[in-house]
């Protein structure tokens, strides 16, 4: 198992390096000048100075390695220092700074991360809670009306884009019914029961939008995987032993069917982070998706480079997790 994990890891690292290079190159070689948005009255020599303070005079490849070093070595060291209160080396390193705010990019991202993680994490849990029962019942009662309904639900779920469900939710639940606030208040602090209820209320719509979209996909996989297992010999054996139908279904079949579904869930998580870009924009959640949009609109290259790379790293990471999980859960996969 360790061998398998190491081999996967060895493959992930070069992938990440190539991707980081592609992202850096696209952003760096594109036409456009960071000083273009400055007022016309700024004289050209000042512009040149600004460009050189931003480090734009160096050759492309040097800037790439500098960025890589800042992101891969400097920032992790800073993180270790700040969390353990120790100083490694000289302790004062050149940090990757955003052009727009002049503050370290990693700090900006760390500020925004919790909101995104809350929304994405909750939506993922709710999605699984919705999808697994639908998938199990659909497969158990294949071709019944409840199965047809489940199919319709999942078809609608992944055909209706999240930006439309989000707006519909706002129209129905905020404008007409007035149940939930349409804007996510990030400054809200949970201190007593009432503020906790408010927090739940403001989280319901963003998480449900993402959860419904994800649940639609997971329930399809769940149904297919259950159907595969229901026709296996071991199910007949279990029934022949006189086990209760409930035990057969929920212990024997469900456990085996969850194996591919768990990996699908893991593979799906980066997509949800991508989907969160849209949801955060609708409900004004100030998470990393919104930070990315702000960075893009403001042409803040270092911020956008880092964020895009984080999204790429998430994809590679969760691919790795899915592979390892699959190997752990299903011994047949560990080909070694």
């Amino acid at each position: 198992m360790l061998n398998f994990t190491i081999r996967r890891l060895m493959f992930a690292i070069p992938t990440l390096l190539v991707i980081s290079f592609i992202i850096f190159a696209i952003l760096d070689l594109a036409p456009g000048d960071p000083t273009a948005s400055l007022p016309m009255t700024v004289p050209p020599e000042v512009r040149a100075q600004i460009r050189s303070t931003l480090g734009l005079d160096e050759p492309f490849i040097i800037r790439y390695f500098l960025w890589l070093k800042q992101f891969m070595i400097t920032e992790p060291l800073n993180l270790i220092e700040s969390s353990f209160g120790i100083t490694i080396g000289e302790g004062d390193r050149l940090r990757l700074t955003s052009w727009a705010t002049r503050s370290p990019v990693v700090d900006l991202i760390a500020e925004r991360m919790p909101q995104t993680l809350w929304v994405v994490g909750m939506s993922q849990i709710i999605a699984v809670l919705i999808a697994v029962p639908i998938g199990v019942i659909s497969a158990y009662k294949q071709y019944s009306w409840i199965d047809q309904l489940g199919t319709l639900f999942s078809m609608i779920g992944f055909s209706v884009p999240t930006f439309f469900t989000g707006l519909l939710f706002i129209v129905i639940f905020s404008v007409n019914l007035g149940w939930f606030p349409s804007i996510y208040d990030t400054n809200h602090v949970v201190e007593d029961w009432d503020s906790f209820v408010f927090q739940i209320k403001q989280m319901i719509m963003p998480t449900m939008v993402l959860a419904l979209f994800t649940a639609a996909q997971i329930s399809r996989y769940m149904r297919a995987s259950m159907l595969d297992n229901l026709n296996q010999d071991y199910v007949r054996t279990a029934r022949a032993k006189g086990l209760k139908e409930q035990t057969v279904l929920l212990v024997h079949v469900l456990r085996n069917s969850m194996i591919p579904v768990v990996t699908v869930i893991a593979l799906n998580i980066p997509t949800i982070f991508g989907g969160a870009i849209i949801t955060e924009q609708i409900f004004r959640v100030n998470g990393i998706g919104q930070l990315l949009i702000t960075g893009i609109v403001g042409a803040d290259i270092p911020l956008v480079q880092t964020l895009t790379f984080i999204f790429a790293a998430l994809i590679v990471l969760f691919n790795l997790i899915a592979d390892i999980l699959y190997g752990m859960l299903d011994p047949r996969i560990r080909y070694e």
Partner: peptide
């Protein structure tokens, strides 16, 4: 490699740049 690229962020970035 293409499958590992974060598509939505990258699309947004490319549109902004070009």
């Amino acid at each position: 490699l293409f499958l590992a690229l974060p598509l939505l962020p990258l699309l947004l970035v490319i549109i902004m740049l070009f």
